[in-house]
């Protein structure tokens, strides 16, 4: 299981780096919102992978909070873009 979770963590790290590159180099606010949303999904996947690796459900409450906060943030920024433009 250690090998599998290590491979999963590595793949997730590559995906996170790609998201961060898009986040830094993007042109518009909507681009950054999409990249941040994907980054939060990757963070949730990473925490779940760590839980599977350590066989403990200690961090799973964090997952619920991060998932909810991710949606709240995305919806908030989307409303902001729609009001302001750009």
């Amino acid at each position: 299981m250690i090998v599998v979770t290590s491979v999963t963590m590595g793949l997730l790290a590559v995906a996170a780096v790609l998201c961060i590159v898009r986040l830094v180099r993007s042109g518009s606010l909507a681009d950054r919102t999409v990249a941040l949303d994907t980054l939060l999904v990757i963070v949730v996947c990473g925490i779940a992978t760590y839980a599977a690796r350590s066989n403990s459900g200690l961090f799973l409450d964090v997952l619920v909070v991060v998932a909810l906060l991710g949606f709240t943030g995305t919806a908030l920024v989307a409303r902001f873009i729609e009001r302001r433009g750009a």
Partner: peptide, 25 residues
């Protein structure tokens, strides 16, 4: 519970972002 939350909120968030991007660009 996390899967259910994500399946119910992800389409709503994507809809909002898509509409905002359409209005802005």
């Amino acid at each position: 519970l996390v899967i259910l939350l994500q399946f119910s909120t992800a389409p709503v968030g994507a809809h909002l972002v898509g509409r905002a991007a359409y209005g802005a660009g």
